[in-house]
Every structure is written in C-alpha cells, then in structure tokens.
C-alpha cells in the first residue's frame, strides 16, 4: 500500500473516477458484440431511459459530497407519480403538477435536512425511513393497486427530440451543466467542497456547516422531484411499487463517478458518466440475457467494489 502513496503517477491514477474506464469497456464490449445497436436512434433510446436516474444523481452527488446520503428519492418518486396518475388533483394544467412535485420535494428535503443536519440522525436510516413512510401512505391511498394513467401530454413531451437528442436527455444535460456551474462558480460549491474535505476545519474557517448540509438535502429532494416528473412522463401508467433501485443506482453511479462521502474527484461529470455506464450496463446485460436478479447482483457488486476502491485509496492518506 505504501508504494501507491509514494508513487505520484499511481496516486493520480487512483483519483480518476472508475466511471470513465467502465464506460469505455462497456462501449467497446457493445461495439464488438452487438454492432447493430451502435446508432444514434437506438443509443438515444437507451440513454433516454436513464435520464430520470441521471437527474436524481445530481442531487445524490450533492449530499454525498457533504458526507451524507439520500435514499428518500424513492419516496418522492412514488408520491409524485401517484399524485399525477391517480387523478386526485383533477383536471389541472401541467404547471400545477410541476408545482406539486416541487413542493413535495421541498417538504421531504426539509424533513431530511432537519433530521440529518440538526438532529444528527444517521442519514441512511432517516432517508430510508422517510421512503418507507411515504411508500406505505401511497400504497394505502392506492389500496395496493396501480393508480391510473398518466396525462397524455407528459408522454408526448417525453417522446419529442431536440435535433437528434431526445428531449429528456437534453433536459438532463442542461441540468448537469447548471449543477456544474453552480458548484464551480458559486460560494455554495466552495462550502460543499470544504465540508466534504473536512467538516471540522470548515467549521473553524467560518463555513456554516449545518446550514449547508441542510440546504444540500433540500436541493437533493427538489432535484428528486424533478427526476420524478421526468420518470412519470416516461411511463404511461402510474406505479406504486416500492422501488429502492433508483436511489441505490444513484448512489452506485455517484460512487462510480468518483464522488463518495466527502471526496469529489469526479465533479459533476464523473457521476454523469456513472449513469451512462448504467445505461450501457442494462443494455449489455439485457442483450446477454442476464435475468433481473443478475442485475441486482451487478448493482451490489458495483457499489461494493467502488466503495472498496475508495476505501483503500482514502486509507492511503
């Protein structure tokens, strides 16, 4: 281990997010084995599938930079999905749905932020419990049955394209650029970087640590509600299945992208490629006929290996 610490080349190499390498490997695998899939239209559809995940990751990377985690995205997703597809809001314009989604995100974020930042509850437990509560309530309201159809115009927007780029992907890209600018050009980004590196030193430097952690959680949940809108648009029928897959995939993609509990080597684009890896991974696995459980194993392995990778490289310090 000491050899890694001593060698500057290796030290730099260990800070490159694994996402880029994994992405390249998956791309080559696909190119060699299924060349017929390598065209703009097909790839567009694949990437469009992960746009909600990609948006969710933007919030996840924020909280993981400040050494927290957010698994409440699943709950937000479910609530927004249900509110839109069940028709309990009546016949309202799209803007009302958007306002509803953002307020759900804001409310969940406030709860998470209070619990994690102020009450110092373990973030995993707190956000997981929030998801369990929201899921239970929604399933109860829906009496366990799928609620109903999504309004048509949602799906219509989802299926449009801007030039050759599917609209959801363009939207995801736009948000990623915005987040990248927010983190690199605003004081908030400096606070995030400082807290991730060392909360104690940040506190002594005058950074409002508690407030920044709370704000990150609020932002993450609001972003989750945006992801929920995109996700709702991608499906025709509402769903009430408890699905931790999305937030867990978001955690995995973020770690793959080089952002983990304080360390932000991958910035915003590392996790972006982490999500792209997932897009390709699902294609590769599906095309090789890997069943669902196999995907679950892959999911677990990716998180574990990425965490081990960072665990080892941070113990070098």
């Amino acid at each position: 281990m000491g050899a890694i610490a001593a060698n500057p080349v290796l030290q730099r190499a260990i800070r490159v997010p694994p996402a880029y390498l994994v992405f390249a490997v998956l791309l080559i695998t696909l190119w060699v084995t299924k060349p017929q899939l390598m065209n703009v239209n097909v790839m567009g559809i694949f990437i469009r599938q992960v746009a909600p995940l990609g948006i969710l990751v933007l919030g996840q990377l924020l909280v993981m930079r400040v050494r927290s985690i957010d698994l409440s995205g699943a709950g937000v997703l479910l609530v927004v999905n249900y509110m839109i597809s069940s028709g309990i809001m009546g016949d309202v314009p799209a803007i009302a749905y958007i306002a509803m989604a953002l307020s759900v995100g804001l409310a969940v974020g406030l709860v998470n932020g209070y619990l994690v930042g102020r009450r110092r509850v373990s973030a995993v437990i707190a956000t997981l419990a929030v998801t369990v509560i929201l899921t239970g309530i929604i399933q109860f309201l829906a009496s366990g049955k799928p609620p109903g159809d999504m309004p048509g115009y949602f799906n219509d927007i989802y299926n449009t394209k801007i030039w050759i780029v599917p609209t959801p992907v363009a939207f995801w890209l736009l948000l990623t650029v915005l987040m990248s600018l927010f983190l690199s050009r605003f004081v908030f980004g400096r606070f995030i970087a400082a807290i991730g590196e060392n909360p104690t030193a940040s506190h002594f430097s005058g950074v409002p640590v508690e407030r920044t952690v709370i704000a990150s959680h609020i932002l993450a949940s609001v972003i989750a509600s945006v992801a929920a809108l995109v996700q709702s648009a991608s499906v025709a029928v509402g769903s009430i299945r408890l699905g931790l897959e999305m937030p867990i995939d978001a955690v995995a993609a973020t770690i793959l992208g080089g952002v983990i509990f304080g360390r932000g080597d991958g910035g915003v684009w590392g996790p972006f490629f982490g999500v792209m890896c997932f897009a390709l991974l699902f294609v590769v696995m599906t095309s090789f006929g890997v069943p669902d459980p196999g995907k679950q194993i892959a999911r677990g392995l990716i998180i574990l290996l990425a965490a081990i990778f960072y665990g080892l490289s941070s113990s070098e310090k």
């Binding site: 459980p293 196999g294 679950q296 194993i297 892959a298 999911r299 677990g300 574990l304």
Partner: peptide
C-alpha cells in the same frame, strides 16, 4: 451492497 448481491 452485500444485501443486493445476496438477494440477487
């Protein structure tokens, strides 16, 4: 993560 692998 081990949970996911084991359930898988």
């Amino acid at each position: 993560s081990v949970q996911f692998i084991v359930v898988g």
